[in-house]
Design a protein around this nucleic acid. Structure first.
Lengths: 310, 310
DNA sequence: CTGAAAGCGCTAACAG
DNA sequence: CTGTTAGCGCTTTCAG
């Protein structure tokens, strides 16, 4: 009893002695480490998500090992690193390529708890933090429709879970407004330099040219606006656009992009909470995060778009 | 011999057995973990630096623990986490606040190898990866001077190693052009909303008003341009500006920002290499990274700025 | 209720 | 040159 007290005092005296997590982990077969896989930390979107995760984990003494999957080789390396480091769990974002899905299945199959963000990887058990992509697409399109636009483009790829969902929302809004879907309004630019010029000449020459676009990615939207402006178009006066993401890095972009806000940090935060709950053996359920429209200055509210025919 | 062969075969058979790093680390007293401290991963600048570090480390089997120091509390938590996890080394960026300097001194004092980025923390031994900030400030200012501007603002705080160095370069360029330094041209906005209006009225009312500004931060530069434009000024026609950083997130900003490019990923990469070398017991030296001017569209080359008096 | 001891999975030193 | 063993620092179990 008194010895114990002395021990405590001695420890307090040494002050800088922290228990060795390696030994502790060896005994407990835990590492107090969580792996977080992202497609690219340099995209401000994922930096925000990571920050959210990290904010939650650090309060519970868990370290976050960042896994930036940018090549097939990095995917392989992280597979083995997560294994050898013996992480206690993994948070994995959607949109990761380079065979990561298979690696995640392997890891999950070996018993590592996994939480997914934005989409489920087939064959991997675990909760996922979803975002209401459909609602986002719906709100974005409705905003354009409400401003009087009738021929609204969807500019983006039509594959991948996320884009598909957003497109679903786009169609929903159109339908609700009684507008017949027109396949020719759904386009994407694989090669901007070549295809954008063709697009522009189409815009000027056709009478029933589109007057607005929903572009399910802020980065693409900003690029689009940039090109439009260098072709002499004014945004939103001549053409309206709504993006998706609400990237903070675009804060000072002019004109301010009307877009759909996602709860980026929350995404990471909730994923971390789910994982922690799972580690404690608690039951977990998928989380669905809401989105909202952020109105700035890329939607022309006053007129029905140049050649609209309402 | 034959048993060994069988062992190898069995291992190959099991295939998914990876040696337990915890046990290995316990024996070797190493963790194969590196801590990386940044002021804010959500700033695209640091995301790039982290990506560079991570790219190097993963090839050597080291995991990267991200330490995002955004509050005093997070600084404290990471101090103890880095200790308990027993990281093999630490890479620490400049501009971290919340008492981190002291924590880093503590950790270094306990024997953890440290590599610093952008500035040395007093009392911490270890190599640092520097950027030629003075040259950057010089190139930025010279670019404005070469375009004919004579009254060039320096907009930014006059404290902190990095800003001070950039300002040094600004003064150097001025001096070289035979322009007397004018303290009133060095300003900073503590509260944009209030002070910017005052600044603008000064701009319109004075005959010898400045015609250009070097703003040693892209984010601030873009904000400045944004404000300028909403006051009816055109950039670069009415006012020229040069930033610093060359943030990729500003890629589509209009007008394209003329700025100083820093080698962001390289910064992180070299820091990792220095740390690895240190862990191997090799001798290390500071690294100085070069910068370059990236000319885009925020400097008016044709005229000497509205009210210039050359 | 306190104190000793076994063992987590590995490596390095040592004996055979 | 191969095979055995001690022990890294902790936790947990078990004996005192």
């Amino acid at each position: 009893m008194e010895e114990t007290r002395q021990n405590i005092l001695r420890i307090a005296g040494e002050l800088n002695h922290s228990p060795n997590l390696r030994a502790r982990g060896l005994k407990l077969s835990r590492s107090f480490l969580i792996g977080m896989a992202v497609p690219n930390i340099s995209k401000s979107f994922y930096a925000d998500v990571v920050q959210g995760t990290e904010e939650c984990l650090k309060d519970y003494g868990y370290g976050l090992i960042l896994c930036n999957i940018v090549t097939r080789q990095s995917a392989d390396r992280y597979l083995s690193m997560l294994r050898t480091q013996g992480v206690d769990g993994i948070i994995s974002c959607a949109e990761i390529e380079y065979g990561w899905d298979g690696h995640l299945r392997t890891l999950a199959g070996e018993g590592t708890p996994v939480v997914m963000i934005n989409d489920r990887v087939a064959g991997v058990d675990g909760p996922v933090v979803y975002v209401d992509q459909v609602k986002g697409g719906y709100l974005a399109t409705k905003c354009l429709l409400d401003a009087g636009h009738r021929r609204v483009l969807f500019i983006g790829r039509s594959r991948g879970y996320i884009n598909l969902e957003r497109k679903k929302g786009y169609r929903q809004a159109l339908e609700e407004a009684g507008i017949k879907p027109d396949g020719s309004l759904c386009i994407s630019f694989d090669n901007w330099d070549e295809e954008f010029d063709a697009f522009i000449s189409g815009l000027t020459n056709h009478q029933q040219a589109p007057t607005a676009a929903f572009i399910p990615s802020d980065l693409a939207a900003v690029k689009f606006i940039n090109r439009l402006q260098s072709c002499g178009y004014r945004v939103p006066d001549d053409f309206s656009v709504v993006g998706f993401d609400d990237l903070s890095s675009l804060q000072w972009f002019i004109p301010g992009l009307t877009t759909i806000r996602q709860q980026k940090k929350e995404m990471g935060f909730y994923a971390a909470q789910l994982l922690l709950a799972r580690l404690k053996g608690e039951k977990t359920e998928d989380v669905l995060l809401d989105v909202e429209l952020v109105e700035r200055n890329t939607v022309c509210k006053d007129k029905n778009g140049g050649t609209s025919y309402e």
